[in-house]
Amino acid sequence: MVGNDIVDIREAKKYSNWQRPRFLEKLFTSEEQQLIHDSPSPFLMVWRLWTMKESAYKLYTQTSPSRFYSPRAFQCTIENSKAIVCYEDFQCNVKTKLTSLYILSEARLSVNKMTYDVVLFHDKNPKIQSELLKSRLLEMVSKLYNTNRPNLNFKKCKYGIPKVIYNSEIIHVSMTHHGNFGAIAL
């Protein structure tokens, strides 16, 4: 089981302003705000923490199906290479990949390797983007399970949580997109 989240760095620079009044207070705990202030790149730390929170939320809602917007309550700690997010009694490990173009996080219950496939979109249409992402996801699952695409059934539950059904097995997956980038994880 995995939750993932990507931030397109160019998009975040263009369409989000983390320096606007009350932005940080709304999303981050005082400890997280300290991490941001102490960071050599506050911008990158803001979005790293954001992807950690979002990926942890996406994992949490798979364990407890629900939908809400409470980013501040997903509390991040980063110590050396270990990153953890806690929400009430829930806790998960998060791994983050940072490139010059995007920041991508994957949250898992146990420490594990990242399994991402990153997609660069050439079309701005959200429907075309999500179809492409879905197709890449099914491709990834079909390779892993050594089966043909028609045997796989993609579904979203009422909370919008995606999953793939193969025979009667439920395969937990996670999808994310922002700006020109999308990513999938198994």
Partner: peptide, 13 residues
């Protein structure tokens, strides 16, 4: 509306 969750906070502000 496909609003990105990163922008929900902007709507709130």
């Amino acid at each position: 509306l496909k609003i990105n969750s990163a922008n929900l906070v902007d709507i709130i502000l």
